[in-house]
Design a protein around this nucleic acid. Structure first.
Lengths: 217, 217
DNA sequence: ATTTTCAAAATATCAGATAATTTGATTAAT
DNA sequence: ATTAATCAAATTATCTGATATTTTGAAAAT
């Protein structure tokens, strides 16, 4: 048994929230979850407690748990936080990253670009995998920043951001792909300023696009 | 019964970690904790899970929990994160805060200043209360920033920072008190730039002072 | 010294049980 | 007809005690 029951259920529930299979605001009844995820009520409570301090779940007094709700303001808030952390970390990572790091970025971009080409070709079924690669790429960009605290916070913020993106399954296709390529290029030329500028545009563009789509109203 | 058993125990354990009554690295044996904090093992696990996603506790595979350990690098890391969040939020709060907010800051500073005078007069026994007021003052400064996500992250980061300060019970007396006065004054004149500059000095000074004290080695 | 072995301790997880709270529907009162 | 009061069912919070794994540490063997 590689991982514990709790870890497995934690990962599944978390993904179910992030990818929208558990809708925003949905009540999370303990006994029902226990059935679905094959873990006991006590274990479930542990998991939901963890998720609630990550902001994906809300614990309401004596009224149990529910999936955190979404709002346009919430998206802008989370996006701003993502930008703050990521633009802070990018220059640090760019100046501290070695060849080992650089090649991890190249590898992450390779996977992401492959997926983007597939999506552009009309194959929309692996949205989830695509988003996973998106996350891994962005994470790899800042991985060499040297601050574990920042990377932890970023992980939590990114998944909240991701959930918003998924609520309105938005594929901005060539625009985003181009921005990702520019980001990769800035890594190879170690141009942190350019990377920050593109990233800001990347995130703000995505937020604007999503909000305009009306999916969050 | 105003608050639940879990909430009460959570608060107590958290304070015990932040204020050093539970030492960095100490193992947290479940049955022992259950005795001490008057909660069952299942409830304890819930609490420790929460604390572990806040970074105050480490969950080690199948080996239970322990208090997160400390290191000079960890302090610098957390301090940098605190500065990032706080200097980002200060200008926002300064421009969005109304009179209601301003008066909350004045009130928080009043309590903090009172405590600082007492500590300067040689009465070192209420260190914990002093730190609580310190926290409340800084929290109040950014409270009007408009981002709940930021305030949540800040709360978690601040307590990690606080723990480092408490490990080396450092009272920088008049220096810190002066900086707090300057911060209050910047609120009243809405000078965010000055506030950020003072804050940066405040935090960096405290980190340097603590590291030099050798308490973290 | 290093490795192997094995019992004791601790953890992860579960399945009920109990008390307190919340929810919703029903009834009573304005 | 709306609001308020009432009450049983559902749900949660919490505990106890049980089982299966894992980890730990000491003793034995190499």
């Amino acid at each position: 048994m590689a991982t514990s029951i709790a870890d497995r259920a934690y990962g599944t529930i978390r993904a179910d929230i992030v990818f929208g299979r558990l809708s925003p605001g949905a009540r999370l009844r303990l006994d029902r979850l226990a059935d679905v995820y094959g873990a006991s009520v006590s274990t479930l409570r542990e998991i939901l407690s963890r998720l609630s301090s990550e902001g994906l779940v809300i614990a309401e007094g004596q009224r149990g748990f529910r999936v955190a709700s979404v709002s346009p303001a919430g998206f802008e808030d989370v996006a701003a936080m993502r930008l703050l952390l990521e633009t802070y970390a990018l220059p640090l990572s760019f100046s501290a990253g070695d060849l080992e790091w650089e090649s991890r970025v190249v590898a992450a971009h390779h996977k992401l670009a492959f997926m983007e080409r597939r999506m552009l070709a009309g194959d929309q079924k692996d949205t989830e995998l695509w988003k996973r690669y998106d996350r891994e790429f962005h994470q790899s960009l800042i991985e060499a920043c040297g601050s574990q605290t920042l990377l932890d916070l970023y992980g939590s913020v990114f998944d909240q951001y991701l959930r918003y993106q998924m609520v309105a399954v938005v594929f901005r296709g060539e625009i985003a792909a181009e921005e990702h390529r520019t980001l990769l290029d800035s890594v190879l030329t170690r141009n942190a300023d350019r990377a920050c500028a593109v990233l800001t545009q990347h995130v703000n563009g995505c937020v604007a696009y999503t909000l305009e789509s009306g999916a969050l109203v």
